[in-house]
């Protein structure tokens, strides 16, 4: 199944490798915020990731039920 083309709301670059981004089809369920070990995510209708706090563990990506947290080139 193809995912809808993401219109990225927040973007970040970490360790100069990949960029994690939250797509506009994030529903705001806050699973990512609830499981983030660094309290790096804030959700109010949609998720926003604080790049300073993020340790790049990718836990949020695995828990997102709609695959809204994506790695982009």
């Amino acid at each position: 199944m193809d995912l809808p083309i993401a219109n990225f709301l927040t973007q970040q670059r970490r360790h100069n490798t990949e960029m994690m981004a939250v797509a506009n089809y994030c529903v705001g369920c806050a699973f990512c915020m609830l499981v983030c070990p660094e309290e790096a995510i804030n959700v109010l209708g949609n998720a926003e990731i604080d790049r300073e706090k993020c340790s790049d563990c990718k836990r949020c990506m695995r828990y997102c039920p709609v695959e809204a947290i994506r790695l982009v080139e």
Binding site: Y25, V27, G28, C29
Partner: peptide
């Protein structure tokens, strides 16, 4: 402590 919204693919 948490505000969770639900729609579309996770309604």
């Amino acid at each position: 402590i948490a505000i969770q919204s639900y729609s579309n693919g996770w309604p």
